[in-house]
Design a protein around this nucleic acid. Structure first.
Lengths: 143, 143
DNA sequence: CATGCTTTTGACATTCATTTTCAGTTATTT
DNA sequence: AAATAACTGAAAATGAATGTCAAAAGCATG
């Protein structure tokens, strides 16, 4: 699974004439080891812990590449930071975002996915990706 | 409809002890005259055309108020600017965003809304609002 | 309608995430 | 190993959004 993702990135890099570098390997490793929804800053700090040399800009640049390669997906919640989540082939999940404690619950719903396809088809629209976020209070924050 | 919105804002202002100012009236008028999804910058420019005195910060502050008052809703697409859309009571629409020409098609789907409620209920989650955006290519950009 | 109190405003400075720049470094090709 | 081109890190630049603060405007009161 991790190896598979590395292969996806290597193939992408090859197809684009990108070079294989130490930094990209490290960033990919650490990104793959994270939980969902890492902000760039979080990832940068994690990387710096083991690899002090790696700069801010490189992390930004590399995450963009992961997202082009289809390994990661940018998500914008409401805290002013871009976050990246892991893309799992053939799976798409959406988010319940708690505005009380900032926790995120993921869910999947095939019926919603299909309805979206219907709607897109009705408008002659070709879906590339989509994003559904439900904001509110989680069970714990409701009291 | 426009009068109704002004009343909503006036009531909100009254309940919060806010004052009635020329600037807020102007910004509300112009906001109500816009199409969906105005960015703060777009609105600011439009306002400046007829009212050169009004400053950037005031537009930001006032849009925040509209959104607290329930007249407007913040949306984050992918161009790094916060946009505001009009809130129509009892109605919620979602967006098909064309990454080719940046056009936005709105749609409504009650079944999706209901499925979201089911999902939230299943997680003990209290929905405040939600957002569904489908990215891809519109009919015109597909060729 | 003058007074005093409070909110609001606009200009400017500031912050913070992200991008750009560019000189030096590194990977790849020959 | 030399040539070429991509990559990197540090620092500067950008751009959206927020904070600051003195001056201006609203609003209640005498």
């Amino acid at each position: 699974m991790i190896l598979e993702k590395k292969k996806i990135f290597n193939d992408f890099a090859a197809s684009k004439g990108l070079r294989s570098t130490r930094q990209r390997d490290i960033i990919l490793d650490i990104f793959l080891s994270t939980h969902q929804h890492v902000s760039v800053e979080e990832l940068y700090l994690k990387i710096k812990a083991s690899n002090p040399g790696i700069g801010h800009a490189t992390v930004y640049r590399t995450l963009k590449l992961f997202s082009e390669a289809g390994l990661a997906r940018e998500i914008l919640l409401h805290d002013g930071q871009t976050r990246y989540e892991h893309v799992v082939a053939g799976e798409h999940h959406d988010h319940l975002v708690c505005t009380g404690c900032n926790s995120i619950i993921e869910f999947e719903d095939e019926t919603i996915e299909n309805l979206q396809k219907d709607i897109a088809a009705r408008h002659g629209f070709l879906i590339k990706n989509h994003k559904l976020e439900i904001y509110g209070l989680c069970a714990a924050c409701r009291q």
